[in-house]
Structure formats: structure tokens, C-alpha cells
């Protein structure tokens, strides 16, 4: 078929005849590709001002060929040049930014309304989302915290021991976990678990018109879906971060216990390095991470486009944005806390 197509169609294309007759009397059956070839031949001949006649073919075959030949092909999409691509990218990014500003504004308005009338918040939803995003994440966050605490202690111990300061590892673990790693690990887990889940939930709702349905009921999707998710995340994340921190310190002790350090001594060392303010600082960080991750997840979900891949894309975007936001804001907050002398 391929050989026939290339041979016959190309021959005709090079020298289109004015009158052509194809003898079909001996043809008993023709498949779709055959019809397409006849249509292509007919189109080429017609373009050259000639006509094609199918002799001995049933009337339907002639009609289908005519119909295929007559159907105008849509103009092929122009391949996009590099400059155009950059232009489209810039416009896309600008639109995205505009959407983001609009989303942030909507969240701000809804938050103010929620503060003024706490009764209008859907607390039942907050509770069920908090259970889902918080409780189910306890195990994985604790596990990661423990492992990372263990690894840091394990890796730093030899260096400190060289200087005969093995017990300093307790201080390192305390400071690192409480001020930095506890909240950070929790934030990243949150982005991977809840950020993507929020984006997928809201994205699916966008695709199936559920968001539209809410709007036509006069129900604001931000008040109805976004605020409960943000609140739930902000309640659970600082707690998760606390667990993570505790397990991380415990992981560090697991290593130090091997060197013969007593639990009481370890606790005393850790306490000498960190206080309530440090603990509070970690909780504040976790709260901010929750706000950003939940916001990015919901925003990404509400911006879901059309098509079967759209929800997946939104979820991916939510995770990437969530992790980037967590790390960026961690840096900014670290700097602010430093300036404030905490």
C-alpha cells in the first residue's frame, strides 16, 4: 500500500492529467486507506482543473471519495519560531502572575470575611481536611525526622570526635532540628502530600465543572474550598513539625547513646543550646509553610486547564511551587529572625 501510494500518487502529482478514469470493475472490496488514496488522487486532479471518474464503482464509494476529497483540511499549524515562543512564554507567565495576584486578593478578602464572621467558615470541612492532611502524615513525617536526625549525628560525630568534642553533636542536632530541619522536612512532606492532593482535588472539580456549579450557586470557591484547606494545613503543620523535630532529636540521641552518652546529659546539652523562642520560631516557620503550600496547591488546582493531562500537570506544578516556596521562605524567615536577633 505504501509503495502503491508513493508511486501512483507521486506520479499523478508530478503530471496531473485533465481527464482520468480509474477502472474499478475488477475491484471487489476497498478499505479505508484505498478510499483515502482515491480521494487524494481526486483532489490532486481537481486542483489541476481536471476531473476523475471512477468506472464501475458503486455509487456510495464515489460519494465517500467525493466527501473526503471535498473536506477542507484545516490550515496546518504554523511551526512556532523561537521569538514567538519566547513571546508566548512571557504572555503566559504574565497571565499566570495576574491570576496569582487575583487569587491572593480573593484569599485576602475571604480571610478578612472569615475573621469578621468565624461562623461563616465551614469548620466541618476544616476538621475533616485536617484529619486527612494531618493525621495521615504523622507516620511519614516522624520517620523522616528520625532518619535525618540519625544521619546528621552519624555523619558529624567523627569530625567532632577528632577535636574531642563529641558531645557537641547534641547541640548541633538540637539547633538544626528545632530551628531548621523539623519545619523544613514537614514543609516538604506537606508540599508532596497535601499540596498535590489539594491541586488534584480542585483540579478535578474544575474539569468536571463543579467549580462552575459552585459559582452559579453564588458560592465563592475561595471561601468554600480554599480557606478550609489553608486553615486545616495551618493547624496541623506546626504540630507535625513539633513531632518531626522531637523524633529528629531522638534520632540524633540514638547515635550518641552508642557512644555512651546518658539521656539526662543529652537533654541538658540540648536545653543549653535552644530555648522556647527557638521552638516558637520553628512553629512560626511551619505555619508560614502551610499557608504557602496550601495556597499554591489550591491556586494551581483552580487554574487547571482542559484535557486528561491537566489535573496531573496541576498537581506537579503544585508540588514544585510548594517546595520552592518552602525553601525560599525558609531563607527569608531565617534572615528576618537573624535581623530581629532571635
Amino acid at each position: 500500500m505504501a509503495a502503491l501510494w508513493d508511486g501512483v500518487v507521486e506520479t499523478i502529482r508530478q503530471a496531473p492529467p485533465r481527464q482520468a478514469v480509474i477502472d474499478m470493475t475488477k475491484v471487489s472490496r476497498v478499505d479505508g486507506a484505498g478510499l483515502a488514496m482515491l480521494a487524494e488522487i481526486s483532489r490532486i486532479i481537481a486542483a489541476g482543473g481536471g476531473t476523475l471518474r471512477l468506472e464501475g464503482a458503486p455509487a456510495e464509494a464515489g460519494r465517500i471519495v467525493d466527501q473526503i476529497a471535498a473536506s477542507a483540511l484545516p490550515p496546518a499549524r504554523q511551526p512556532v519560531g523561537a521569538i514567538e515562543q519566547i513571546g508566548c512564554g512571557v504572555i503566559g507567565a504574565a497571565n499566570h502572575l495576574g491570576d496569582l495576584v487575583e487569587f491572593t486578593g480573593a484569599v485576602a478578602i475571604s480571610s478578612r470575611a472569615a475573621l469578621r464572621a468565624p461562623g461563616s467558615v465551614r469548620w466541618r470541612d476544616v476538621l475533616s481536611i485536617a484529619a486527612r492532611t494531618g493525621f495521615d502524615a504523622v507516620a511519614v513525617t516522624c520517620l523522616l525526622g528520625f532518619i535525618i536526625g540519625f544521619i546528621i549525628a552519624f555523619q558529624t560525630l567523627p569530625s567532632f570526635q577528632t577535636y574531642g568534642a563529641g558531645n557537641m553533636v547534641a547541640v548541633v542536632i538540637g539547633v538544626a532540628m528545632v530551628r531548621e530541619l523539623g519545619p523544613l522536612i514537614t514543609g516538604v512532606v506537606l508540599a508532596g502530600r497535601s499540596g498535590s492532593a489539594f491541586a488534584a482535588e480542585l483540579g478535578t472539580m474544575t474539569v468536571t465543572n463543579e467549580i462552575d456549579a459552585l459559582r452559579t450557586f453564588g458560592l465563592d470557591p475561595v471561601r468554600f474550598l480554599v480557606i478550609p484547606r489553608m486553615l486545616a494545613a495551618m493547624v496541623t503543620t506546626p504540630l507535625l513539625s513539633l513531632f518531626c523535630t522531637f523524633l529528629g532529636v531522638l534520632g540524633g540521641y540514638a547515635v550518641l547513646a552508642g557512644t555512651g552518652m546518658s539521656g539526662a546529659y543529652f537533654v541538658q546539652e540540648v536545653q543549653s543550646a535552644i530555648g522556647v523562642m527557638d521552638l516558637l520560631q520553628g512553629m512560626v516557620k511551619a505555619g508560614v509553610f502551610a499557608l504557602l503550600v496550601a495556597g499554591a496547591g489550591c491556586a494551581s488546582g483552580l487554574q487547571t486547564g482542559a484535557g486528561p493531562g491537566a489535573v496531573g500537570e496541576s498537581a506537579t506544578r503544585a508540588v514544585v511551587a510548594g517546595i520552592v516556596l518552602v525553601i525560599l521562605s525558609d531563607g527569608v524567615m531565617g534572615w528576618l529572625f537573624f535581623l530581629m536577633g532571635i
Partner: peptide, 19 residues
């Protein structure tokens, strides 16, 4: 627009029930 939306009922092609 908000006032209008309370005066219309809509059934979407996809159903769009809250899952």
C-alpha cells in the same frame, strides 16, 4: 451577577455533582 445567579438553576452537561 451574584443576585442573578440566585435566580437561575443550572444543570451542567457533565452533571457536576459535588463528588
Amino acid at each position: 451577577i451574584n443576585a442573578l445567579r440566585r435566580r437561575i438553576g443550572v444543570m451542567y452537561q457533565s452533571g457536576a455533582l459535588f463528588g
